[in-house]
């Protein structure tokens, strides 16, 4: 109880005790507007087919996704190098490395497995 009373008396200290900043109105609005733009543009690119080449469209759409994830991390999840004395960022970096290995490894191995295990001739020749 005394802990609660203490915290309530110093309401502005709660953030520090929770270890995470809550951001500001301008921060949330910046994040929101950036997110709207970063969502609308890839949808528009795919739906209108403005760029004829699907490979290029895919690459651009993926770049937009990565940028939007970073925007969300900064403006909505309030990630920085200082929160929790850097442990948040350390956990994030570790996770990203594991995720990168898992994704790249799975796709790479399974792609090669598919190409190497497939019969080299196509099925029509067997008829």
């Amino acid at each position: 109880m005394s802990a609660n009373a203490h915290n309530d008396a110093h309401g502005h200290d709660v953030h520090h005790e929770l270890g995470v900043a809550h951001g500001s109105m301008s921060g949330y609005m910046t994040g929101f507007i950036l997110s709207v733009i970063l969502t609308a543009v890839p949808f528009w690119l795919v739906m209108s087919g403005k760029i004829g080449n699907p490979t290029w469209t895919a690459a651009i759409v993926m770049v937009f996704a990565v940028v939007q994830i970073v925007v969300h991390m900064i403006y909505f999840l309030h990630m920085n190098f200082k929160s929790e004395g850097g442990w948040n960022m350390l956990a994030l970096v570790f996770t990203l490395i594991v995720v990168g290995i898992a994704l790249a490894g799975s796709l790479w191995v399974m792609y090669h497995l598919n190409t190497n295990m497939m019969p080299s001739h196509d099925m029509r020749q067997m008829l």
Binding site: T39, P54, V61, A65, I69
Partner: peptide, 14 residues
Amino acid sequence: IGVFTFVYLLGMLR
């Protein structure tokens, strides 16, 4: 963000 990009948008481009 990952879902709509990789599943839906890239799916339409496949």
